[in-house]
Design a protein around this nucleic acid. Structure first.
Lengths: 154, 154
DNA sequence: TCAAATTAATCAGGGCACTGAGTATTTCTG
DNA sequence: CAGAAATACTCAGTGCCCTGATTAATTTGA
């Protein structure tokens, strides 16, 4: 038995979890708007006028991916994108009225979907589930950003 | 506050977890062979001669995706693909010698990576982590396959 | 002040993941 | 046995996700 058991590989489990979520989202929330698109919309409803990079940071998408997601949302008329007159490099984003309406509708459906998704877990287990995943993800992200040098900057 | 807090959305956490794993894999295991490719290789080392569909089932990839992954592994010379003489629809897959060598090498590195990835959790927490994710993913997958009718078949 | 460094966004390219449609082969069945 | 159904795979299309290179604009600093 030279081969490893995939069910003990966190990466494999993470991928399966994400796939399962993707399929359920498609079935219960929307076939048009994806979960990352919703995350972007959600961020912009809370903080209209953010620039692209910052939105990407908030939802955990790199510069290239956030550009694609935003271009799709913009094409669908769910957000407006205008150059920042103060800083010509930036694009400022804000949801359109339809964007806000869509966000509201999807928020309801998402809550329903999350109930189904988490149904196998008790309330206590859900808390642990969130906590463990968050800790692992945070730690791994921390490995990327060499974190501010321990010595005083400058 | 019309917007929801993403950190309580399991889908968002699942995506972040998977991304974190992707980045760590790239840094610690391989930039050439991806985690899904490794999973396929791992399955074929354990059970050489499987057909494409079955491999996809084992690692949790649909027919289209498994076809792409296999075509890449085949292009890299890590597996052989031959038509089943018994059933002309099937392609039978088995790792090449180099495929087996690559698999062995990556298995060692993957173990190291998993240690780092799971470092924030205690041994007990890791067990829970696996258990909770597996239960949620299994349940969601169960929703897709309408599951064998409850009444006796035929 | 004006060249160098930094920053925001874009583009090209590779890979994963799904759906729906199409092809070839095998199996089922009338 | 021939037509229908099922099965394995392929293909086209959409979207997420990353890296590395490029472009445009702003900020820094000699």
């Amino acid at each position: 038995m030279a081969a490893a058991d995939l069910t003990t590989h966190p990466g494999h489990l993470a991928r399966r979890l994400q796939q399962a979520h993707y399929l359920l989202w498609n079935a219960m929330v929307s076939e048009e708007i994806t979960s990352p698109q919703y995350a972007v919309l959600n961020t912009l409803v809370a903080e209209p006028g953010l620039d692209q990079r910052t939105v990407g940071e908030r939802v955990g998408l790199d510069r290239s991916t956030i550009a694609e997601v935003i271009s799709r949302l913009s094409r669908r008329g769910l957000l407006d994108k205008v150059r920042d007159p103060q800083d010509g490099r930036r694009s400022l984003l804000r949801p359109t009225d339809e964007g806000v309406r869509t966000h509201r509708k999807l928020t309801v459906r998402t809550a329903r979907m999350n109930q189904v998704f988490l149904a196998p877990l008790t309330a206590d287990e859900r808390t642990v589930f969130f906590d463990l995943i968050r800790r692992v993800a945070d730690a791994a992200e921390g490995l990327r950003n060499p974190s501010e040098p321990l010595a005083a900057p400058r």
